Amino acid sequence: MTEVPDFAEVVAFTRAAEAFDWMNRAACAGRRSQFFSDRDVDKLAAFVICLRCPVCQPCARWRDRTQPKHGIWAGAVASTRTSN
């Protein structure tokens, strides 16, 4: 018999899914290779994509909270981001 999750579990799961919903709407969705490349041409293309992205602000908040060591997030590469 399948166990039914309680209401708190459902709410927690829903909030977690909504917190990352912006990633599905990002202009970079499906373009991982450009955002994790060392090639200047790929980085430039990634920056252009970030400029027109509808979810740049949530991406920047996520970047600032998690401090990823690799990739371009909200138009910034790890080497240009300041550490707290």
Score class of each variant (00 low, 15 high):
M1C: 07
M1R: 05
T2G: 10
T2W: 12
T2D: 11
E3P: 06
P5S: 04
D6A: 02
F7L: 15
A8D: 13
V10Q: 09
V11R: 10
A12P: 02
A12L: 11
T14E: 11
R15C: 02
A16Y: 05
A17N: 10
A17L: 07
E18A: 12
D21N: 04
D21Q: 08
W22Y: 09
W22G: 00
M23R: 08
N24I: 02
A26L: 03
A27V: 04
A27Q: 06
A27Y: 01
A29L: 15
G30M: 02
R31H: 15
R31Q: 15
S33G: 05
F35C: 08
F36R: 07
D40V: 11
D42G: 14
K43P: 04
K43S: 10
L44P: 03
L44G: 11
A45Y: 14
A46G: 12
A46Y: 03
A46T: 04
I49K: 09
C50K: 02
C50Q: 04
L51T: 09
C53W: 07
P54Q: 06
P54R: 03
C56R: 13
C56W: 03
Q57W: 00
Q57M: 05
P58Q: 03
P58K: 05
P58L: 03
P58C: 04
C59I: 00
R61F: 08
W62R: 01
R63P: 00
R63G: 00
R63C: 04
D64P: 00
R65W: 06
R65G: 08
Q67H: 11
P68Y: 06
P68T: 08
P68W: 08
K69R: 10
H70V: 11
H70G: 03
H70Y: 11
G71H: 13
I72C: 06
W73R: 06
W73Q: 08
W73C: 07
A74T: 10
G75M: 11
G75L: 07
V77A: 09
V77S: 08
A78T: 06
S79A: 12
T80Y: 05
R81Y: 00
R81K: 00
T82S: 09
T82Y: 00
T82F: 00
